[in-house]
Design a protein around this nucleic acid. Structure first.
Lengths: 208, 208
DNA sequence: TTAAACCTGTACCTTTTGTTACAACTATAA
DNA sequence: TTATAGTTGTAACAAAAGGTACAGGTTTAA
């Protein structure tokens, strides 16, 4: 299975026993775009590891949303990880952004392995730490920066990550990334355009 | 050593080898009130476990602050934990609120043990999860609630935790808990008082 | 080609939050 | 007792963010 080999390589899994266990209990699955794969308040039964594709993880409140993070290939949703160990309900939502290939692992195994296999332990620990620090950064951003600054931060980091000056999102999508409303994003983007920082066009922002 | 026994009990440490290692490398220390024990941008060399006392952990930006959490006895600062595994600089600040007894453990041991000892693995994992979920809650609160609501949330949870209707903090201290300014807290508290939700007196808020 | 759905811009207004400036109050230690 | 350091209250204003309403643009698919 090519996908499992990719997984082993990405997570630096060298233990033959762990490879075998993963092949035994892991379920390879392709999920179409825009599928809710983790839902708030529901129990998590599987740990999903993304092989190809992209998953968006967010929190919501009525009609507003705020992004937590994206899960890119060979990462995992740390919220799933948390739920494994606590056997509790999800605090977040996760949806595929495009057709996504995942390997699903029943939660109880994922918990056991963190003690049995060094590479798995290292993977779960790193996932937690990375997610925690990421959230810490977002928290500070939200606490001390204005929408203007947060929007610019988002655009800059998005541009950096995609290695492109073009951000292909509508204003309402952007609003749901940074936790505000569409109108505020439209106004703020116009300000940024007048300041010569971005160029605006239909469903696209160019970072100058 | 009474303090070490308390630690073993609180963390459900049963492995004799781990107990021995902790006794060997752990350093028992009493820190006076208002000491900075973790400083932003500095390397973390010790993992501190609080036995008695209380430690405040926060983020800051110029003259503003926002609380992350308090470390109460037999918990640990998860930020220290994170730094252990990454050998990196602290993203936060931590200060003792009162005279505090801690057991300090050199970071490299804390990392090794998470694979060697089941109870240690369980402790570190639970610490991460708890901290992550806590931060997730705070993030959502900050993203979607007004100062009024966040202040009330803070007062209510503080009252619940201390099992007392009295919150003994000045307005400027409260401002540094919820990430705003003193004037805003004063005004908001007055609103809450007029609504019959609290009684205000010098350095004290009574939750009705 | 046309309807429907979604996107963008913006005027106007409200609410929330932050800032400045001052006056008065309280606790504490010399 | 009295200075002093910190606390509280608040008016007046400014800036940031949110809400309403509507006009007009773009895309897509029937």
């Amino acid at each position: 299975m090519r996908e499992f080999d990719q997984l082993f390589k990405a997570l630096n899994i060298v233990e033959e026993n762990l490879k075998e266990e993963l092949l035994n209990v892991g379920v390879l699955q392709t999920v179409s775009a825009n599928s809710l794969i983790v839902e708030k308040h529901k129990y998590i039964k599987w740990l999903a590891l993304v092989i190809h594709g992209k998953v968006r993880v967010w929190q919501e409140n009525q009609d507003r949303q705020i992004l937590l993070y994206y899960v890119n290939p060979i990462q995992t949703c740390v919220l799933s990880l948390a739920a494994i160990f606590k056997d509790c309900k999800s605090l977040i939502n996760a949806k595929t952004m495009e057709e996504t290939t995942i390997i699903k692992i029943p939660v109880r195994h994922a918990a056991e392995w963190s003690f049995t296999y060094k590479s798995w332990n290292s993977f779960t620990t790193k996932s937690f730490i990375h997610s925690y620090e990421d959230l810490l950064y977002s928290y500070k951003d939200l606490a001390f920066n204005t929408v203007n600054k947060r929007l610019l931060n988002y655009i800059q980091s998005s541009s950096r990550q995609n290695n492109s000056p073009y951000i292909k999102l509508s204003h309402s999508q952007l609003a749901k990334e940074i936790g505000t409303t569409r109108e505020v994003v439209s106004k703020t983007l116009k300000q940024l355009e007048h300041s010569g920082i971005v160029n605006l066009s239909f469903k696209q922002i160019e970072l100058l």
